[in-house]
Structures are given as structure tokens and as C-alpha cells.
């Protein structure tokens, strides 16, 4: 088992932890963090799997992940603005449909 595959498996674990947090929490900010963890896990799998199959550095998945990180930051910023607007309007930090 090489370094690349270990981190790909680590990414799989991070994905699982992200999904766990996303289901567990009501709080929107916590859910956003969980979603970011899921994203980081996906990036690790993408690069780790490609490089373990190749046995060396592969620039194409690395470039894709670089693009992905920038898009993830933009999405996080937009989500934070949606969360703030929701909190301003409803005075709550979680969605209402779930509590009975």
C-alpha cells in the first residue's frame, strides 16, 4: 500500500465523517463545515487515487483539485451570505421545517 492510496482512503474516511456531521447537525453553520469536510475528502480521493494508479505525480487531477478549491471557497462565501440573510429574516440559525 503506497502513500497515495493511504491518503485516498483517508479521504474516504473524511467523506464519511462529513456526511455524518451533515445529517447529525441542525445548525446551518455546522452543516456548512461538514459539507466542506466532504469536499476535502473528495479532493483527497481524486488526487490520491489518480497518483496511486500512476505511481507518480499526475498534474491533471492536481489542476482539477486546484480549480475545485477555488470554487468551494466561492460556494462557501455564497452559502454564508444565504445563512446570514436567513438568520436576519427568521432569527434562527437552523431551518424551521424540521422541528415540529
Amino acid at each position: 500500500m503506497n502513500t497515495y492510496l493511504i491518503f485516498a482512503l483517508g479521504g474516504a474516511g473524511l467523506c464519511g465523517i462529513g456526511l455524518f456531521g451533515f445529517i447529525l447537525h441542525d445548525d446551518l453553520l455546522r452543516r456548512l463545515i461538514a459539507f466542506n469536510l466532504l469536499g476535502s475528502g473528495t479532493f483527497l480521493i481524486l488526487v490520491g487515487l489518480a497518483q496511486s494508479g500512476r505511481g507518480g505525480v499526475d498534474a491533471v487531477p492536481q489542476a482539477l483539485v486546484l480549480t475545485g478549491i477555488v470554487v468551494a471557497v466561492a460556494a462557501t462565501a455564497l452559502t454564508l451570505m444565504l445563512i446570514r440573510r436567513w438568520t436576519q429574516l427568521s432569527q434562527q440559525s437552523h431551518l424551521t421545517e424540521e422541528d415540529e
Binding site: 474516504a12 464519511g16 462529513g18
Partner: peptide
């Protein structure tokens, strides 16, 4: 349950990964 099953499914897929047909590098 869903966190664990996602991790297990992904790990299984990673360990079963076929050799890559296209050598982009």
C-alpha cells in the same frame, strides 16, 4: 450508519480500482 456505509463503500471502490487505461500525464 450513513457515514460508515459511505466510508466502507468508497474504501471498497478504492481498493478494487482498475488500472487506468488513459495515460494523460
Amino acid at each position: 450508519f450513513s457515514g460508515l456505509s459511505l466510508t466502507l463503500a468508497l474504501s471498497w471502490a478504492l481498493l478494487q480500482a482498475p488500472a487506468m487505461p488513459i495515460a494523460l500525464d
